[in-house]
């Protein structure tokens, strides 16, 4: 189930790949009181996909991906408050805004590597956070941005208080994002990203414009993160400062690692498991919850680098060998 791409990979959609969608549709009917959480999970899956693209496939380690998520969220919020509550326009604006920020910051920071790059991603997020915190007139600062309403999607489907429309809206957007990411991963571009991650020196030696590839991947990833942010703004009708926080970036990494890095569906499994567990445990046992998350990270790094999906893969492989 790893989706490694490359020139001999079979890019056709496998039967098992329809499972998440069937599951998501079932949830809509089976758990109507959890649709708000469901929408949030779907949104975070898009965000995790965007991180997977640069971290899992591109090998760019970032502690600041929330900068783009937050930009998308604020752009969509400000647009809804000041200009129009048209949802698709809001998504577009959030995506473009974050993509542009991704392009500019990517052009600048991707010239560096290692600790410097890690620091730069962190510094940029911190800077965005400070800007949003101080520009109270535009962003509402620490109070957050609210008081806007989102118009019906395509003029047909209005957002209801049970979150039904929001859930389906998120699901459709996630489906589109998944389809695009999947195409990208299996494309020659995706293969070349793997090359950059695997061996940078060799990539240069075969005449690949490594810097350019990294910038393009970073921009796409940022745009996708912005899309997720805009989606969160529209489904919750509120933007808080935490969308730009370092904590969110950290949580996102945890989710992706939990699911499995560099395998598309890790970005599905991770947020689902993490957020459902958080919903059950975090409020009741906050200390134990954080301890558990920390221990889980340490264990994953020490023993199960493929995350949950990696463990499942290994299990299946063992069964096959056994039989």
């Amino acid at each position: 189930m790893t989706h490694a791409g490359g020139y001999i990979a079979d890019a056709r959609i496998r039967a098992a790949e329809w499972l998440p969608w069937v599951f998501a549709a079932l949830c809509y009917f089976a758990a109507p009181s959890y649709l708000t959480l469901g929408s949030y999970i779907l949104t975070m899956i898009i965000f995790a996909l965007s991180l997977d693209l640069i971290l899992g496939y591109g090998g760019i380690i970032t502690l600041g991906h929330s900068a783009y998520f937050g930009t998308g969220a604020y752009v969509a919020g400000i647009l809804a408050l000041r200009l129009t509550g048209e949802p698709l326009l809001g998504l577009l604006a959030g995506t473009l805004g974050a993509g542009l920020l991704g392009l500019f910051t990517g052009l600048v920071i991707l010239r560096t590597r290692g600790l410097a790059l890690l620091m730069l991603t962190l510094a940029i997020t911190s800077l965005c956070y400070e800007v949003a915190n101080r520009a109270t007139r535009l962003t509402g600062g620490a109070d957050g941005l609210g008081g806007f309403s989102i118009r019906p999607i395509l003029g047909l489907f209005s957002f209801d208080m049970f979150g039904k429309t929001a859930y389906l809206y998120c699901l459709v957007i996630l489906f589109a994002s998944w389809w695009l990411v999947r195409r990208l991963v299996y494309s020659p571009f995706g293969a070349s990203l793997t090359g950059v991650r695997e061996n940078n020196v060799r990539m240069h030696a075969i005449g690949a414009p490594v810097y350019q590839r990294r910038v393009v991947a970073y921009t796409i990833s940022a745009a996708l993160a912005g899309l997720a942010g805009a989606l969160l703004t529209q489904t919750t009708q509120f933007v808080g400062l935490n969308v730009l926080g370092f904590e969110l970036s950290g949580e996102l990494i945890v989710m992706l690692v939990l699911g499995g890095v560099g395998r598309i569906y890790g970005a599905f499994v991770g947020p689902l498991v993490y957020l459902v567990a958080q919903d059950y445990l975090a409020k009741r046992f906050p200390e134990y919850w954080y301890f558990g998350i920390g221990a889980m990270l340490v264990l994953v790094v020490m023993f199960a680098r493929g995350g949950i999906l990696g463990i499942i893969d290994a299990g299946i492989a063992r069964l096959r060998r056994g039989s």
């Binding site: 791409g5 020139y7 890019a11 494309s187 070349s192 690949a208 393009v216």
Partner: peptide, 17 residues
């Protein structure tokens, strides 16, 4: 793929080249 200028393409699966 780099030599042929294919490597930057984003849409079709690599295997279809």
């Amino acid at each position: 793929a780099e030599r042929e200028g294919v490597a930057r393409r984003m849409f079709r699966p690599a295997g279809s080249y």
